[in-house]
């Protein structure tokens, strides 16, 4: 069973087969555990290194098919990947500590990408919502915007309103069950990427 939920143009959600293969760099040679005050640090901050040059160089890229490639791998191995982009077989994965500006610097027309995925390592990392909203509103991105990583049903309603239209539910959870959470609220107060605040949406007298 696929873990991928997709919204159609009219907002209908369904579980669909995933055509995209995610390209993941190999684990770093030595896993450095960062600690602060005795606690393991789980979050990367804006500007931090996503992958080391070795990891990027050693990343295996499938020779054919649709691939989702981390932004840093694209940046380092552009020549090799450009034909794939031209063939409509390449999408980019942005991590939550990477910036929409960095993506824009690579793709003057973001709509040349058929898909952008934002990878959230921890579901509690709310940067994914602002990144999604920015891509949709500020950068005019219109194609598929996918949430991947620690994607759980209790955040889906927010993902959807922040502009995401596909959601790869974490492997150990049921995508079927998650469908229900997309409709937790029928008339939210504030606007989202696709709608205006409730007092502009309906007449509250």
């Amino acid at each position: 069973m696929s873990q991928l939920i997709q919204l159609s143009a009219n907002g209908q959600a369904s579980i669909v087969a995933d055509e995209w293969t995610r390209v993941v760099p190999p684990a770093p040679a030595e896993e450095s555990v960062r600690k602060q005050a005795g606690k393991v640090v789980l979050f990367k901050l804006t500007g931090e290194l996503t992958f080391t040059p070795e990891q990027i160089a050693n990343t295996q890229i499938p020779a054919s098919g649709k691939i989702l490639v981390p932004l840093t791998v694209w940046q380092a191995r552009k020549a090799e990947l450009e034909p794939r982009l031209a063939a409509g077989e390449l999408g980019i994965v942005l991590a939550t500590h990477e910036t929409a500006e960095a993506l824009q610097a690579e793709f003057a027309d973001l709509n040349s990408l058929p898909i952008i995925a934002i990878f959230v390592e921890r579901f509690a990392d709310g940067r994914i919502f602002t990144l999604g909203a920015w891509l949709r509103t500020r950068f005019g991105y219109k194609n598929e915007l996918r949430a991947i990583g620690d994607v759980l049903r209790d955040q889906l309603f927010f993902h959807k309103r922040a502009g995401f239209n596909s959601f790869l539910i974490r492997a150990d959870r049921s995508a079927e069950d998650a469908l229900a959470s997309l409709n937790d609220f029928s008339q939210p107060y504030q606007g989202g990427v696709a709608d205006v605040p409730v007092w502009r949406r309906v007449n509250r007298a």
Binding site: G126, F157, F158, P188, Y189, Q190, P197, V198
Partner: peptide, 14 residues
């Protein structure tokens, strides 16, 4: 209050 209730972008702030 209404604007901040279930604000989609600010549900999981730092």
């Amino acid at each position: 209050r209404q604007w901040s209730t279930f604000h989609p972008e600010f549900a999981l702030l730092p």
